[in-house]
Amino acid sequence: MHETFAMAADRKNLLLRLSPNVRRAWNHRAAEAVLKPRILFDYELLYLEKGSLQVRITEDRYTLEPGDIVLFKPGKEHEFQGIAGECWMPHVHFDALFYDNFEEVPINFKEWKDCSEAERNWLRPDVLGRILHMPDVMRIPNHSEVHKCLVPLIHAYERKDADFPILQKSLMLKMLYLLAKGLEMNENSRSILHQDALDNTVTYIMEHYDQTIQLEHLSKIACLSVYHFSRLFKQKFGTSPHQYQMQYRLEKAKELMIYSRLSLTAIAEKIGYSSVFAFSKAFKLAEGIAPREFMKTFSGI
């Protein structure tokens, strides 16, 4: 997926603001499943562990099989239309963002037309669908990892202690991360074949960040052509190999400026710059502040 700058900014902003709260978590198992048409004010994440389930979401109909994940979204009408055999469907109702009225909002079982004005005001925005592009039904290769987070979340919900909010947020965030990565795997199936190779080149960059690394050398490590390596690297890490190295160098520089007594000249040399002038120029361009000003911030000078 090629994102515009605005779309990428919206995505980053949302990822920083995610603060999920679980409204209900239930390890539901049933030989019969009846759910009349309704809308939700929040999200429901359902994992089909066993059985076969037919659902309708707005005008679309799906036959769910084990491993399928459904994200019922705020305001989208849905219903269960059929079930084959016993269905195991652990699920969780949650808000993706923090809302002060979290505890006031119930799980809804009515259609939109039957909701009062006050109830309609509880409707959350669908940020996961609109900004993260999460579909209603997900068939992703890492679905079992999602299930491994969902089960302990349900157990923790059933035994809620005072510190449950910390655990439920961490598990929900991990599940959202796994969903995003699973969808990315589906979209970039070719890059999956080269995951280890790409990771190896990043390790090489980290271990040799103070040296001049040729693109051709990295592509040989990955056993890919320069063109395909560059494309797949940027697809996975969001930046070019050269930019990745420059960013890593500057992070190392900041670490040395904060925790060592080295001079700027020594730091510049240590991280691979030909001169302190070249280092200072690159640092200010990336960070918006000169290295000496950065050092003063942490030294108290």
Results as ranks from 00 to 15, higher is better:
Leu71Tyr: 03
Leu250Asp: 09
Gln235Thr: 11
Val151Gln: 01
Asn200Glu: 14
Arg56Ser: 07
Thr4Val: 06
Gln243Ser: 14
His91Arg: 11
Arg124Ser: 04
Arg17Ser: 10
Asp163Phe: 08
Tyr259Ile: 03
His91Met: 09
Gln214Trp: 09
Leu224Ser: 02
Arg231Glu: 06
His78Ser: 04
Ser225Gly: 12
Cys149Trp: 00
Leu35Arg: 04
Lys270Pro: 02
Gln214His: 12
Glu287Tyr: 15
Thr212Val: 13
Tyr259Pro: 01
Ile289Thr: 10
Leu16Asn: 01
Met295Val: 03
Ile205Trp: 07
Asp196Tyr: 09
Tyr99His: 13
Thr239Val: 12
Leu45Arg: 00
Ile57Ala: 02
Leu264Val: 07
Trp122Met: 11
Ser260Cys: 15
Met172Cys: 06
Leu176Cys: 05
Ile39Asn: 00
Ile271Phe: 02
Leu14Thr: 00
Leu46Asp: 00
Thr201Phe: 03
Asp60Arg: 13
Arg231Val: 06
His143Ala: 10
Leu18Phe: 00
His28Phe: 10
Asp199Pro: 01
Ala286Met: 13
Ile57Ser: 05
His93Ile: 08
Pro125Cys: 06
Ile192Leu: 15
Leu285Pro: 03
Asp210Arg: 07
Ala268Val: 12
Val127Gly: 03
Ala156Gln: 03
Arg38Val: 09
Phe277Thr: 15
Glu117Ile: 08
Thr201Met: 05
Asn101Gln: 15
Tyr248Leu: 12
Glu86Lys: 14
His194Leu: 04
Gly82His: 08
Phe98Ser: 10
Lys148Thr: 04
Lys236Val: 10
His78Glu: 02
Arg23Met: 12
Phe94Ser: 00
Leu45Val: 09
Leu14His: 00
Tyr244Cys: 01
Arg159His: 11
Tyr204Leu: 11
Gly82Trp: 09
Asp68Pro: 02
Glu104Gln: 14
Glu287Leu: 10
Pro241His: 02
Leu264Ala: 08
Lys270Gln: 15
Met257Pro: 05
His2Pro: 01
Gln168Asn: 05
Ser260Thr: 14
Ile107Tyr: 08
Gly288Ala: 07
Ala118His: 08
Asn101His: 15
Leu46Gln: 01
Arg130Tyr: 09
Leu153Val: 04
